[in-house]
């Protein structure tokens, strides 16, 4: 009995963490399980196991065109915001210059502004300028809210870089560009990759800002939101689960590669 209380008090926080993880994963598990539901239109009640939905994820009307739009917006916005954000991160992480704190503020503000305000203000501007909202305006909006997250992620990596490594490269006859290309960039690359992954998942998952800026363009979250009223087809669960495993695969693969590299060193 004494041993049990001792074990409990020692592992209390681990037990707590276990329950927190369970809580985090219940809806994920539910979504996954119901992707095998042999349902018709709504996916509310368990009707039996089937692989049909996984074999034909585009079986529900409009779902794959919405998914395609989400990918187009996600990839384009990720590419642009990663480049722009990385440049800012280097400026902030490497140089002392006038206007540093103003820049920090400008990076912070979009993160401190609720999505609905970002969406509403962009829509207002587009309306004022007579611009029709489309996939293009959606991409513009997504780049805008992704930049700040990219800057924060990459800047942390740049700041943790030992400046002596760059000095060593210069000492070994590398000019500024070669130093950047051969030393700095490879060392910051994992941070940039993490930032890109973050930007993509933010963009892919965004509903509120997209709802304001994408006009009539359908995206995957929009598809889910609209069909929520009349019942979501199980294909949405298939796509959600597939995205989950794909992202998990990328992250785990990256972890394994980096730990192998470390082991080699």
């Amino acid at each position: 009995m004494k041993n049990l209380t001792k074990w409990l008090s020692k592992n209390l926080i681990r037990i707590y963490a276990f329950f927190a993880f369970t809580y985090l994963f219940i809806p994920v598990l539910y979504t996954f399980v119901f992707s095998f539901n042999d349902s018709r239109k709504t996916n509310l009640i368990w009707k039996g196991f089937t692989l049909d939905k996984w074999k034909n994820p585009c079986g529900a009307p409009d779902i794959c065109s919405a998914l395609g739009n989400s990918f187009v917006i996600g990839f384009t916005a990720t590419a642009i915001s990663t480049v722009l954000g990385t440049l800012i991160a280097f400026a902030l992480g490497r140089y002392r210059f006038k206007g540093r704190s103003a820049t920090n503020l400008l990076i912070f503000l979009p993160m401190a502004t609720p999505e609905i305000v970002l969406g509403a203000s962009l829509l207002t501007m587009f309306v004022n300028l007579g611009i029709n909202t489309s996939i293009l305006t959606a991409i513009i909006a997504h780049v805008m809210f992704c930049i700040s997250f990219v800057v924060v992620t990459v800047k942390a990596r740049v700041a943790s870089l030992d400046p002596r490594l760059e000095q060593a490269a210069m000492d070994l006859y590398a000019n500024e560009w070669q130093t950047f290309r051969r030393v700095t960039l490879p060392l910051v690359a994992p941070g940039i990759a993490a930032a890109a992954l973050l930007a993509f998942s933010l963009s892919f998952d965004d509903f509120i800002i997209t709802n304001f800026t994408a006009g009539t363009v359908n995206t995957f979250p929009r598809f889910v939101y609209v069909s929520a009223g009349r019942g979501i087809p199980a294909q949405a669960n298939v796509i959600g689960s597939a995205m989950f495993f794909l992202a998990l695969f990328i992250v785990v693969a990256a972890q394994i590669v980096s730990s192998r590299r470390k082991a080699k060193i």
């Binding site: 994963f25 809806p27 994920v28 998952d205 509903f207 979250p221 998990l248």
Partner: peptide
């Protein structure tokens, strides 16, 4: 990881 499943799907779940 749960973040990768669309937050709408999780909320509906």
């Amino acid at each position: 990881a749960p973040f990768f499943v669309s937050f709408l799907l999780r909320t509906i779940a």
